[in-house]
Structure formats: structure tokens, C-alpha cells
Design a protein around this nucleic acid. Structure first.
Lengths: 227, 227
DNA sequence: AGCAAATTGTAATTGGCAGTACATTTTGTC
DNA sequence: GACAAAATGTACTGCCAATTACAATTTGCT
């Protein structure tokens, strides 16, 4: 055991600081664990283990478990929004545009199960942590405005019936897209996995699109209403 | 303080046994607490406090927290089934029968939020506790058979298009009925409570019925298919 | 009545996990 | 280069809540 002059043996102790990267790393791990196990089900130690840093840093940046959860929830919303592509709905006829929006929403939810599970957990907690977040509110209002524009064009062209409520329509689209992911475990436990194969999912998506289109379509009476 | 001959003062110590009633009492309290707070969120002490008996009896009859949860989950399914009325669907034309089934399902889910929340929680847990339960499987297969009969009649009469998958149709009906209850907290936190007023709910139910009927309705091409 | 099994009461115990204390290292700034 | 503030490492502590130990009481049975 020779005394190393520059005793750098096992790189004794020395690290680099990188606050932003550390915070993002923690949020990533937290989202994954909260989505898997819920708020009280997730363990800070487990989250820390999934991290490149330590439990100490979680408390340093996020104060406590609830603070971490709130930030993870906002991060989940932000991440899912970043995954949204510009659908250029204005380039399509109203019916075609709506069909594209529904199909995209269905697929997009499917691609982001962790986000869905965070929302499920938030619902279990009666949306207690979401109410304060302006970020989250804004994200969803964007979706409503998109729908509102589509509805306006559809009514004007006579393709859509009158009096469609954009929030209700958003509810209808969300219901199927969300349920498809949120209830997959119990549904496939009871009825088997057929509906969750590639073919099954494609069929469900087609049905969802068809249902929405059928619901907004103008009836002959409505068309008579055109002045 | 005269010595009471039959010293029954404050009924010193003496109780009646009633195993069945105690078990039901515990399950009722457990379901309520699990539905409110989730599996790890619910506290045995809180459940015991909602009971006419003590924490000791919970462990006596249900072994541990998970055992209690499993029984509470089955009890939730059993209770919701008991609340189902006989809709006498055979007495109605297929379209009318289906409309009644959808409307009833929508309302019935709304009347049983605790059941919905138990299923939400089970989904968070990847349906781990439900897989073993034959009871639960049977309850849902009943719904499928009801739909299958309706579909058969509708196809025969030419009212419905061909090739409707009863499980997919059940998925469609469940999606809207379930989502309506499960996501009420987050949805109303973001978009306000309008859709959850009496009028709002009636409108959503109408939309759900209309969407399902539009989706199963035979197109003119299908009708040409009739031999 | 008397015995054994079932049921209930009372009071611990134990482990897990959120949160903290304190020391050390890095980094910007003068 | 020295000082302060920011960032990180290490090792706890304290408490909550699940579970259990043990005693007492009831009930069915003969």
C-alpha cells in the first residue's frame, strides 16, 4: 500500500454540479414511480434509487413528497403536450379534420400511459393538487379552442349540426381515448386481451372516430335549417 | 354509590356475538375508505373507526390489509350487481332496448361512485387482485350475454349492421359511463362543473345513447345485404 | 355445569419510510 | 485565493401504521 503522491485512488470524492439536469432526472424518476404506484404507494427511496442522484437532493429541490408529486404532475402534462404534433386541421374539411383529431387523440393517449395514470391518481385524490396549477388549465384550454374552431367551420359549412358544445365534445373524445388506457388492466383481466392487440386497437379507434362523426353530423332537418 | 346487587352498572363487560353482521359492517367501512383513499392510502385505524367493532376483528376475519381489500372489492361488485334492475330488454325492439341499456348503465354508474373508484384503484394496481376472482368475472359476463342477445335480434331484424362485437360494444358503453364518474374531479377542476349539473348530465347521457345507436345502426348497404 | 372452540377486548411491538442534522465539496465573486 | 452560497454526501431519527401477543368473554355441545 504505497502512499500515492496525488492520492486520487478510487477518485476519492469529487463531483460536478448540474442543478437543472438533476431536477429533470428526479422528475423523470418520480413520474415513473408515482404513475406505477400512486401517491402514497410510491416510496421516496424507490424514486431515489431510479435516479442518478440521491434522496437528499429530492428534499433539497422539492421540499417534501407532495411537492415532488405536484411538480411531477405538471411535468407529465408538459411532456404530453410536447408530444402533440401540429395537425394542421385548418387544411382539412371539418369532418375530415375532426376524424384526424379523434384518431390522433386516441393514439396519443395510448403512447403516454404514464400521463394517463398520473391523471387517474389525481382523480383518486379528488384533483386536490391540480386545482392550483395554471399550467395544467392552459394546456387543456388549447384543446378546447382547437375544437371550437372546427365546430364553427363545420356549422358554417352545414356539415355539422348546430349547438355542439365544445367541452362536451371534448368529453366524448376523451372518454374513449382515456378509458382505453386507464381501464386496460381490469378490462383485459375480465375479457381477455383481444381488444388490446394491434388489430383490436385499430378497430376501437375506428369505432371511436365513427361515433364522434355520427354524433356531430347534421341531420336532414338541420340542413333544412340552412338559410 | 350503593352496591348494585346485580352489578349491571354501565353494563360492565358483556357483549353479543354476531359474526355475519360484524363482517358486513367491516366490509362496508372498508369499501368506503378504500374507495376514498386507495389501497395504501386507506388506514386500518380509520376503517376500524368507521365500524361498530374494533381493529382486532378486521384481522380476525380478513387476516391482513390485502385480504380485506380483496373482499371489499368483491363486495363492491356484488353490491353494484344487486342494484341492477331487470330491464326486460326482450320486450323492446332492438334499438329501443339498446337505448334503454345505455341510459341505464350511464345512470347506474353515476349512482355507484364508490364502485367506480374501487375499479380505478384496481386499475392503478394493474388488476392484480381481480384476476383470481371468479365472482367478478361472472358478473361481467352477464352483461356481455345481455348484449349478445340484443345484437342477435338487431341483426336479424335488419336494424343493426352485421359483425358487431359484443365486447367492443360493451367497451364503448362502459367508456363513457365510467369516464363520466372516474374523471369528474379533474374534468370539472379544469372545465367547470356545468357538465355535472343535472342538465349537463342529462345532455351527456343523451349524447352517449345517440352515439351508440348511430354506431350500431345498419347503413343502406347493410340493409341491401338482407337475403 | 363444564369443556372446547369461536369471538372480542386491551395493550403492546415492530418495521418501514418520510423527513432531518450535520459535514463536505463545488462554484461564483471580489 | 478567500469567502459565501449553492449543491451534494452520509448517517441518522422519529413517528405512523400494520400486525401481533395475550387475556377475557361468549356460545355450542354433551
Amino acid at each position: 500500500m504505497t502512499k500515492a503522491k496525488e492520492n486520487k485512488e478510487k477518485s476519492k470524492s469529487s463531483w460536478k454540479q448540474n442543478p437543472e439536469r438533476v431536477k429533470q432526472d428526479i422528475l423523470r424518476a418520480a413520474m415513473s414511480e408515482f404513475a406505477k404506484s400512486g401517491l402514497s404507494g410510491a416510496k421516496i427511496d424507490d424514486i431515489a434509487a431510479k435516479t442518478e442522484t440521491s434522496k437528499r437532493m429530492i428534499y433539497y429541490y422539492f421540499d417534501d413528497k407532495e411537492g415532488l408529486y405536484r411538480h411531477a404532475l405538471e411535468a407529465a402534462y408538459a411532456k404530453v403536450r410536447k408530444g402533440e404534433v401540429n395537425l394542421d386541421l385548418a387544411d382539412y374539411a371539418p369532418t375530415e379534420g375532426l376524424a384526424r383529431l379523434v384518431a390522433f387523440t386516441f393514439d396519443h393517449h395510448r403512447r403516454n400511459p404514464d400521463f394517463i395514470r398520473m391523471v387517474m391518481i389525481e382523480n383518486i385524490h379528488h384533483a386536490a393538487h391540480m386545482r392550483s396549477s395554471q399550467v395544467i388549465r392552459d394546456l387543456n384550454l388549447g384543446a378546447i379552442n382547437q375544437l371550437r374552431a372546427l365546430i364553427a367551420r363545420g356549422e358554417a359549412s352545414g356539415d355539422f349540426r348546430r349547438g355542439i358544445d365544445p367541452v362536451a365534445l371534448h368529453w366524448q373524445i376523451s372518454a374513449m381515448s382515456f378509458f382505453n388506457v386507464s381501464n386496460q388492466p381490469t378490462f383485459s383481466a375480465i375479457f381477455g386481451k383481444d381488444l388490446y392487440s394491434n388489430d383490436g386497437q385499430a378497430a376501437l379507434r375506428d369505432r371511436a372516430v365513427a361515433m364522434i362523426l355520427a354524433d356531430v353530423r347534421a341531420t336532414s332537418e338541420d340542413q333544412d335549417d340552412q338559410s
